[in-house]
Design a protein around this nucleic acid. Structure first.
Lengths: 205, 205
DNA sequence: GCGAAAACTATACCCGACTAAATTTTGAGT
DNA sequence: ACTCAAAATTTAGTCGGGTATAGTTTTCGC
């Protein structure tokens, strides 16, 4: 799969990373809205146009790893053990990532700063909601194609809604000063509850 | 409650309405992003600054009736018949409004144009998501205060997610050319299914 | 090496949402 | 009538994301 990291590709990846890294660093220091594209370009030693070349919108510089998140969900569903229900595969994945403090899981002391930046910017909050929508659509399609007979749209909407709510609650508590360790237990419980409700509710369909 | 529609108040209300009406009209004609605040000000025969005086953000000119929506939900929950479960009151209200083609219900031939404008503008879509979030928060608080022992956040998140999904599906079909009458039946079915799943799932809590 | 394609740079520009401050109008109460 | 405070207006901006263009450097495939 990964065989030709041709020089061109490597340089591109490196430039992209440099922009994203310098951008994120500035955002962490001063907040999303207080940093201009020009400053990022300068910090990354790149022209302003090049920034837009890699990131069509400013928000994408910060939310750089979303594609990985979509892939993660897709792989979780498509690559589940034969016979395992979609929902149980998703539940396991989500709980595991939270427990391991995986970057995309979100429950970890390091991510307080990440949350602070997002909460502090209307543009980033808006983009985050948009991303949740995209995830919901992907998930709905995956559920439909899984052949378990679940109503994809409804299931995805409820699941994304519930998880997002739990995630935000956990983030708010961490922002309020609680340590990740303390928040984690409740968060896992909230996720478990969400899946229980969903599974029980869908059982009679 | 409503006793003093003093001249001053009436004029304010009238100015507000004039701005919102002219604005909406222009949006319907040409799309949200293609209309500037300046044009709206001119059409409403008001200064540009006055527009911002009444509507802090451009999007609010179009989504003018959201406060009514929040009130509607609040009254539905608080004013339900004694002993009636929150969820059943909400379900009745939502189905009734859809059936009656209520402006805030959304299933009516007239609203195709409304949808088109929203779908056509990233800013309006973003604001719509934000509004859903606000509604979710209000609903969560209402459910918590209802004393039925339901988990407010989770219930609200799932309900708003499910309804929004159904609503958007119905809107998309109307946009694709189907008549409201045809879409209505499926939409009501989708809402009913959502409530069934939710109620059954929550039953064991 | 060489020509073509891709990536990058410099630069200038647009655009329209939103703001600040000072001034004028207008309705309310006496 | 007359005064006062709220509301509306005028004027004069700022600000930064995003774009368009045209030219320069770098990498690739051969």
């Amino acid at each position: 799969m990964k065989e030709t990291p041709s020089l061109r590709e490597r340089k591109k990846a490196e430039t992209r990373k440099r922009i994203s890294d310098h951008g994120s660093m500035l955002f962490y220091e001063r907040g999303f809205d207080e940093v201009t594209i020009g400053e990022i370009a300068e910090a990354a030693d790149v022209s302003k146009v090049t920034v837009f070349n890699y990131f069509p919108r400013k928000e994408d510089i910060f939310f750089d790893r979303i594609p990985e998140l979509v892939d993660l969900v897709t792989e979780t569903v498509r690559g589940r053990r034969p016979g395992e229900p979609v929902l149980s595969a998703l539940r396991d994945m989500l709980v595991r990532h939270a427990r391991e403090g995986h970057p995309l899981g979100g429950i970890d002391d390091r991510f307080v700063h990440f949350f602070r930046v997002v909460i502090g910017s209307a543009a980033l909050r808006a983009r985050a909601r948009e991303i949740a929508d995209e995830l919901e659509a992907v998930l709905a399609a995956l559920i439909d194609e899984s052949g378990e007979g679940l109503p994809g749209r409804l299931t995805a909407a409820m699941l994304v809604g519930a998880f997002r709510s739990a995630y935000l609650t956990a983030a708010a508590r961490q922002l309020a000063g609680e340590r990740a360790a303390g928040v984690l237990a409740d968060h896992v419980a909230a996720v478990d509850l969400a899946f229980e409700v969903l599974e029980r509710g869908l059982a009679g369909t």
